[in-house]
Amino acid sequence: SAFQICYPLTADSADVQAAADAEEYLSYLVLDLSVRGEIPAGFGAYLKEKNAYPYLTEEEWDLLKSDRPDFLGVNYYASLAVKKPGPIDPKADLAFFNMEDYVIVNNPFLPTTTWLRGSYDPLGMKLTLRKLNDRYRLPMIITENGYPQTEAPDEEGCINDQERIDYIAAHLHAVKEAVSEGIPVFGYNIWSFMDLLSGSQGYKKRYGLVYVDHQEGNRGTLKRMPKKSYNWYRNVINTNGKYI
């Protein structure tokens, strides 16, 4: 599941409720159905108010509740900041997730990058793992985590993606801290091994440890070139994360 941790913009209780509502809709709705066989209470009330609550027989609800997964696969990239209903911030990252009960805004306390606008948040990964462990008590594996940026080889054919190294190192450290607290995380998968097509940004948005010479307009040789992060991550694996 792609988990979207949501912070209230302020200590206003209305912002706190808005953040809780956003988390229920964006993350817990699917997870609660998959793990518990139920709809989160707050969002369930919203669906009933809109006459949109799914009709299932008692037997069908029992069937949903009877098949608990063995573990959770967690995709994490960034966090969100949320405020109570009001004016929409058109520059907010992931503003298309807005609903009538909450408004997504840029977090003024987090650094900005080209593709992770205002939500570069390694600590958010640790908090995500805490929340998921408290709610579901299941082992977890990080199925996706990585850093997107626009990049190209320099004159010597090298891709110095130090920003990606810093991002991955910080998030691996967050996972390491979570494990040290007793949270059962049994694996980590980086996104991604090589550059690939981004669903909405094409080849402008790259995640890979290996550069693929493929450009917009179906141009390029498809040549593969390891980036600086490739060699760094290989060393992380070989040393079992000794230097993280």
Rank of each mutant, 00 (worst) to 15 (best):
S79W: 05
L33P: 03
K48M: 13
A41C: 13
S1L: 13
N98I: 04
R135I: 13
Y7V: 07
Y230H: 04
Y233H: 02
I183A: 01
L129R: 03
N238K: 12
N231R: 04
A19G: 11
Q149S: 08
V185W: 07
T10N: 00
L127R: 06
S66Y: 10
K205Q: 05
T239N: 01
G73V: 03
L72R: 06
W232L: 13
R117W: 14
P153W: 02
N240H: 13
P122T: 06
A95D: 14
E60F: 05
H173R: 14
A22T: 02
F71D: 06
I142Y: 05
V175A: 12
D93L: 06
S198T: 03
A22Q: 08
T113E: 04
G37D: 14
L222A: 08
V212G: 06
P54R: 07
P8L: 07
F97Q: 12
Y207I: 02
P111H: 13
K242V: 00
A19L: 12
G217R: 10
R36T: 01
N51L: 12
Q201I: 07
D93K: 05
N133C: 04
G118C: 03
E177C: 14
V185A: 11
A178N: 14
V185P: 10
V35W: 11
K65A: 15
H173Y: 14
A92F: 03
Y7R: 09
Y203H: 05
L123Y: 05
F43E: 03
A20Y: 13
Y230F: 14
Y102H: 07
H173E: 15
D21G: 02
F71E: 08
K126T: 13
